[in-house]
């Protein structure tokens, strides 16, 4: 008897639709053939969990097939874990389609000789920044308290532009911007960032970098920076960074009161990414 036919017989047996001869034949098979007996127990448990088998009938069958109870438990567990198992399988498939960045960067990202490694630039920029900070952002006039606060607290926001080796013109542009930005050549970065924003106007990170560049030497434009950071304040990803740099832009613009008010607001916000920086600013 084929699987399909046997299952049809079992359904008919449950609904008492088998003739006495067919019923006797099925009972004999269940009794004598271990395989059919196993199919029958699986079937009964399935029907019980599908609520096709009443509690009373289930108890009657349980008397003849005590293994039914364990089968029901196992099927319950399989049903509850089915979606999770399906998700895990799909996740493995997805991890092959989208491997970790570290596995793909070797083939797609730029080569990494020492002078092109990001951390070398970062280190060089950090040292340069530390050495030049007082000169880069400080104006000639010492009485400008807001500008002093800015110079003491400004730190470059880490730039992460995803450049791809052998990529298109946009990738070359990004690479150039990244090099200039990390070297503190903000004025040179401004027109390039504007070009990038024209290409991808919905990207908030480019706007944040542009705002930071507007605060750089030789001709800081704090008002332009303020306009950008204000517009970014509600951004999901860069809102907190924009808020912190907005506070610094106010200081640069000598609007000490507004800069301080914003720094205090950040300092009171428990989960703010720039809370430590704001607290430090206020303590000095």
């Amino acid at each position: 008897m084929t699987d399909q036919k046997l299952i049809q017989q079992m359904y008919r047996q449950l609904s008492d639709a088998l003739s006495p001869d067919e019923q006797a034949e099925l009972s004999r098979m269940i009794r004598e053939d271990q395989e059919v007996k196993r199919d029958w127990v699986i079937f009964l448990a399935e029907q019980y969990l599908d609520k096709e088998l009443t509690e009373g009938k289930y108890k009657l069958y349980l008397a003849d097939f005590p293994q039914l109870e364990a089968e029901v438990q196992q099927q319950k567990e399989v049903r509850s874990l089915w979606q999770e198992a399906e998700n895990e399988l799909f996740k493995s498939e997805l991890k092959e389609i989208l491997p970790p960045l570290s596995q793909t960067s070797g083939s797609k990202m730029r080569p990494l000789p020492l002078l092109q490694r990001k951390w070398v630039y970062a280190l060089a920029a950090a040292i340069l920044l530390l050495l030049c900070l007082p000169f880069v952002f400080q104006s000639g006039s010492a009485q400008w308290e807001g500008k002093d606060v800015f110079a003491q607290n400004f730190q470059q926001f880490d730039m992460r532009l995803n450049t791809i080796r052998g990529g298109d013109e946009t990738d070359s542009l990004k690479f150039l911007i990244q090099s200039q930005y990390q070297s503190g050549e903000y004025a040179k970065s401004i027109p390039l960032l504007q070009q990038l924003i024209a290409q991808e106007p919905e990207n908030p990170s480019y706007k944040l970098y542009l705002g930071i560049c507007y605060m750089g030497k030789p001709a800081p434009q704090p008002q332009d920076a303020i306009a950008i950071f204000k517009a970014l304040q509600d951004d999901l990803n860069f809102g907190q960074a924009a808020e912190w740099y907005l506070s610094l832009a106010y200081f640069l613009d000598d609007n000490v009161e507004e800069g301080k008010r914003l720094a205090e607001k950040i300092g009171q916000h428990q989960g703010h990414s720039f809370r430590t920086q704001a607290t430090k600013l206020l303590s000095n």
Binding site: D3, Q4, I7, Q8, M10, Y11, R38, D39, I42, F43, E46, E71, Q74, Q75, V78
Partner: peptide
């Protein structure tokens, strides 16, 4: 019946 056949295979 197809569902029961598939279910049977899975459990086996």
């Amino acid at each position: 019946t197809t569902k029961s056949r598939c279910y049977n295979r899975l459990m086996k």
